[in-house]
Simulated scan of single mutants.
Amino acid sequence: MTIREVLARVDTIRPNAYTDGEKIAMLNTIEGRIYTDILEQAEGFDKEFLPFREGEEERELMVPVPFTDVYLYYLAAMIDFYNGDSGRYNDTMVLYNQAWEDYAAHYRERYKPKQTNLTGMIPRRWR
């Protein structure tokens, strides 16, 4: 899914007055979290996170279909939050949290986590 597709879908489900640039900044927040909290934790993951900019609307997002609702719910929730609609924000965040957990579980089932070497963390007197 591309940035343009996400922006178009969120504008359809949650009409708003925010610019594409403002929504792209919101997308950078969620894409950065996906990168650091999920993707980067896998063994062998070597892609670099490059924040989105206006003019890159054809760029692909990291999360594949059918898990792209994580983006839609996050943007919709942020629109609700900035509009001061706490009831809608809370409802949408429930959907977002479930979408996040679904994608995280899917990813972790398929990719081996990075191994941590704890040798350097053990004090000398215990070796």
Rank of each mutant, 00 (worst) to 15 (best):
A42V: 11
L95I: 01
F52H: 03
I34W: 04
D85M: 10
R9D: 09
V63E: 10
Y96K: 05
N16E: 00
M121N: 09
Y96W: 07
W100H: 04
Q98H: 10
D69S: 08
R53F: 12
A99F: 02
E40H: 14
Y103P: 06
R108E: 14
Y96V: 02
M78R: 07
E58Q: 11
L61K: 13
L72V: 03
I79G: 00
P123W: 08
R124E: 07
V70W: 01
T119I: 07
P51R: 12
D69N: 11
D46G: 12
Q98V: 12
R110H: 14
A25K: 02
Y35C: 12
R110V: 08
Y74H: 10
L39I: 05
M62Y: 13
H106E: 13
I30M: 10
R108F: 15
R127F: 08
Y74C: 05
A8K: 11
F67W: 15
L39K: 06
R4D: 08
I122E: 08
T29A: 04
V10A: 05
S86W: 14
R88V: 03
G87I: 10
R14F: 09
L61Y: 11
E48K: 15
P123M: 13
I24F: 04
T68P: 01
F45C: 13
E56L: 06
D11N: 06
D80S: 14
L27A: 08
N90V: 00
Y107W: 15
L75A: 02
A42P: 04
K112W: 03
R88P: 00
F45G: 10
G55V: 02
R108V: 11
L39S: 01
R108L: 10
D91L: 09
D11K: 11
R9H: 05
W126T: 00
G32W: 08
R108G: 07
F45M: 15
L95R: 05
E40W: 12
R88Y: 08
G21Q: 04
G84E: 09
L118A: 05
A77S: 14
P66K: 01
Y107M: 07
L50S: 15
L72G: 07
K114D: 00
E5Y: 08
V65D: 13
P15Q: 09
Y82F: 07
T68V: 08
N83G: 04
D102G: 06
A42S: 15
R108M: 10
A104S: 15
A105D: 09
I13K: 07
M26N: 03
E22N: 01
F67V: 01
N83I: 00
R88C: 07
E58F: 07
Q41W: 04
F81L: 12
P15V: 02
T119H: 10
Y96T: 00
L75T: 00
G21M: 02
M93C: 11
T92V: 14
M62F: 13
F49D: 04
F45L: 15
L50W: 03
K47A: 15
L72F: 11
T2E: 12
E48A: 12
N97V: 08
W126F: 11
E43H: 12
L118S: 01
K47Y: 15
Y35H: 15
N117G: 00
V63I: 14
Y89W: 13
I122P: 00
I122C: 03
